[in-house]
Every structure is written in structure tokens, then in C-alpha cells.
Design a protein around this nucleic acid. Structure first.
Lengths: 228, 228
DNA sequence: TGTCGGTCTATGGTATGCCAGAAACCAGAG
DNA sequence: CTCTGGTTTCTGGCATACCATAGACCGACA
């Protein structure tokens, strides 16, 4: 036996019921497609507390947090409702996203190492604009990872946090719109240009390309996506 | 008597204890200068609930909200502490602010009316770079209102909300740094240029000027402000 | 006198019960 | 049948009691 000492593992950190309930609720809401209009939009404190097996207090705190994030709306003595974002709100979110991610790109040109930037290639080079049609699922993932990578390489935790909060609202849209072949092709070209600008440490150009890339998504949504 | 009808006023909407407690707490925290190191950083649920005259439940919900905004940190069975932001965090906030406000400037060039943009003049023209020294208090206010006006004219509620959340953390810094005469002078010149670019509907230039203006604040803080 | 173990206290987490108000329901008058 | 007023029920807001644990405190033993 190599070890005479007790092998001590840090004891399993059980987080509070509140945060576990929060995670569970958030996951549940993300899982359902809230834009399918026949989805159940009403929540009930007491029913949920039974389903989760916790009392109303931690559940209420979790709900309050979700309300602050804009996922649910709590109407006193009326009920709790899952929020369906309006098109205008989605467009604002994409606009803010554009602002943040373009700033992130600027920061990447200043803060990231050459190796880190080079790492972006593998999220981009795997796809060519001609054959992307047959790998849409993978591309959609790579697309999301690419944007996440830029934000992460910026080393700005606050940008990451805010973007993360927006992401879950925009994700559904992003996935929906990417499935139009022209947008995917255009997207691939954009991404390659962005990586080039980052490698050249061209802050202005990287920032502008990222901004325009995301604002194009915004304009596309504005024109073609029907939500309400 | 001109009116035979009852003059009905919408009944005073009493908001929940939770939100009133939240407001009161937030105001109290803002009022104290948390960077005076001998300030009391520890909060106590039960004591506060007595002072506010509410039970712990709404108080806790208010505190939870403040925690999510990053104003306090709740440590289970240890205590609740007012958070002192690190310099790095402040710098991230100013960076995000720069991203948002520069995007706002871009939106202003697209969405605001000529009259609205002209209205910015009165926040800028009252001061000249030579005589600002004797009206620093007023200028500090006008400065804040100017930035608020750009964000408001962008018509993007989300930018306004996020900026607002950042504002209270950065406000103390902004006021502290403006009181160095050279920065005030430089600021006045910047603002005038920004208004010109907005009037010319020059999106790129307006965006760039706003960004650079705020990033200069960031770099100034990075170099000269001592927090920790 | 210093260390170690147990005990007490302070504090946030959780469960639960009551309350007020909104909406649904119901019954009686017209 | 319709409209109105009351009544019941459902729901979130709030108060409060209890719980578990971190840390302070204390006393005995070496």
C-alpha cells in the first residue's frame, strides 16, 4: 500500500437549496421552448415547492433571482409567469451583445497571447463556406464556441458575465437563424476575417468586424424573424 | 363648480416591503463612502430587520438582490458584508461602460432627432475649458448628466439598465477623478467633439470619440487611483 | 501557563402559517 | 338571460419559529 495516510477528499460542498432550486428552474425554463405558444407559461409557488421537495422560501428566492434576470415575471396575487421576450427586447440584447463582444475583440488584441489567438483557428478552419450545409449542427456549436472564445480571451470577467446572462435569451434565435445557408456561409467568412484581424493585433478592425458581424444578426432578426 | 364628477386620482401604489427595503438599503450603502476603510462593512439581518421595522423575509429578499448586483456578499453563517470593489473590477466596469456608451452614441446618430441632439448643447456649452476650475461641482453634475443623456437618447433600455447598475459603483471614482483640473478641461473638449460628431450623424466618429473618452478614464484610474 | 476539547452563541438557511387582495364563481334581482 | 353584488378560493407577501454550523468562549488537564 503506497499510502498509510487517510486519503481525504474535500467534503462534498452541498450548495444551498436556494441555488440548487435556481439551477433546476433555470434549466427547466431553458429546456422548454418558450416560444412554442402552447407552452405552459404559468408557474405556481406551492406546486413547484412540492415538485422540488423544498419549502416555499428557497423557492421564492430562486424565483426572485430569475425575475431579476428577466426570465420570469412575478405579479403579486396574480401569478408567476415565464417571460416571453418581445422582438424589440431581443434586438436590444443583440445590440448590447455587439457592443460587448466588439470591446472584447479589442481587448483580445491587447491581452491574449499568440497561441491563444491561434487556437481560434480550430473553431473556424474546420468549416468551409461551400460544404457547411451538411454539417449545420456542428457548425452551430462551433459558432457559439467561437464567440464564447473571444469573450473568454478578453480576460474581462464582467463582459463574460453579462454576455452569459444575455446568451440564454438569444441562443434560441441564434440557432434558428444560422440554419439559413447563406447566413452560415457569410458567418464563416466573417469569422475568418475576425481571426485575421486579431492575429494582426489590429484593434480597430477586429472591433469593427465583430460589431458589424453581430449587428448583421440584429438586422436579420429585425427583418425576418417573427416572434410576437 | 366646474366638475360634477368625482375627481379620481389613481390610488397611491404602495410597493412591496421588499422593494422599499431594497431601495432603502441601496441608498444607505451609496450614502456611505465604502472606501473609507473604517466604515462598517458588516450587516446583520436581524438588526436591520429591527431598524427597518420589517421582518427578515422581505429584508432577505432585498439583500439577495443586492448580492446579485454585487453590492453585498452573503456568507452562510458568517455574515453579510458590503463589498468593496477591487481596482481590477472597477476597471472592468469602466471598460464595459465604454463599450455600452459608445454603442449608445452610435444609436443616437441613428435614432435621435436633431432637436434632441441639439439639447445636448446646454449640458456642454455652459462650460469653457478655461473657467471650469471655479465651478467644479456644477460641472461634475453636468458631466454625469451628459453621459446619461447620450444613453437615454439611444432609446436602448437595456443599455440604460446595465449602465445604471454599473453607475453606482463607478460614481465615486468618476467624481473623484474629475477634480483634477486637467481632466476636466480635457473632458469638456471631448464632450464638444462628441456633440459635433452626433450632430453630423457620423456614427463611426461618435462611437470612437465616446469610447476613447471613457477608456481614457479607465487608463487614468489604472495609473493613478489607489483603492486596495 | 498553554493547549485542547467541549459548550455556547450568533447568524444565515429553511419551513410553515397567516394575511390581503385578485379573480373566479355564484346567486338573486330585474 | 343579463347584470350586479357578495362570497369563495387561489396566490403571492410577510412574519416567525426552528435548524445547522462557524466561531467565540471557557475550563480542565498537562
Amino acid at each position: 500500500m503506497s499510502g498509510v495516510k487517510l486519503e481525504i477528499q474535500p467534503i462534498e460542498e452541498v450548495q444551498s437549496l436556494k441555488s440548487r432550486t435556481y439551477d433546476a428552474l433555470k434549466a427547466a425554463i431553458s429546456a422548454m421552448n418558450i416560444y412554442d405558444s402552447n407552452a405552459e407559461l404559468r408557474l405556481d409557488e406551492r406546486a413547484l415547492s412540492l415538485q422540488f421537495g423544498v419549502s416555499r422560501t428557497p423557492l421564492r428566492e430562486a424565483l426572485a433571482q430569475l425575475e431579476q434576470e428577466g426570465l420570469v415575471r412575478i405579479a403579486p396575487r396574480r401569478g408567476i409567469y415565464i417571460v416571453r421576450k418581445t422582438k424589440a427586447e431581443i434586438i436590444e440584447m443583440i445590440t448590447v451583445w455587439a457592443a460587448l463582444e466588439s470591446m472584447a475583440a479589442r481587448l483580445v488584441t491587447q491581452a491574449a497571447s499568440d497561441e491563444e489567438i491561434a487556437g481560434l483557428h480550430e473553431l473556424v478552419d474546420t468549416f468551409t463556406s461551400t460544404e457547411v450545409g451538411s454539417h449545420m449542427g456542428e457548425y452551430s456549436d462551433a459558432n457559439i464556441r467561437f464567440h464564447g472564445a473571444i469573450i473568454s480571451l478578453s480576460r474581462c470577467k464582467l463582459i463574460a458575465d453579462i454576455s452569459n446572462g444575455l446568451f440564454m435569451h438569444v441562443r434560441a434565435i441564434r440557432q434558428r437563424t444560422i440554419f439559413e445557408k447563406d447566413r452560415a456561409r457569410r458567418s464563416i467568412v466573417d469569422h475568418k476575417e475576425i481571426v485575421e484581424a486579431l492575429e494582426a493585433r489590429n484593434s480597430e478592425r477586429a472591433e469593427r468586424l465583430v460589431r458589424e458581424h453581430t449587428l448583421r444578426l440584429r438586422d436579420h432578426v429585425e427583418q425576418f424573424v417573427q416572434l410576437d
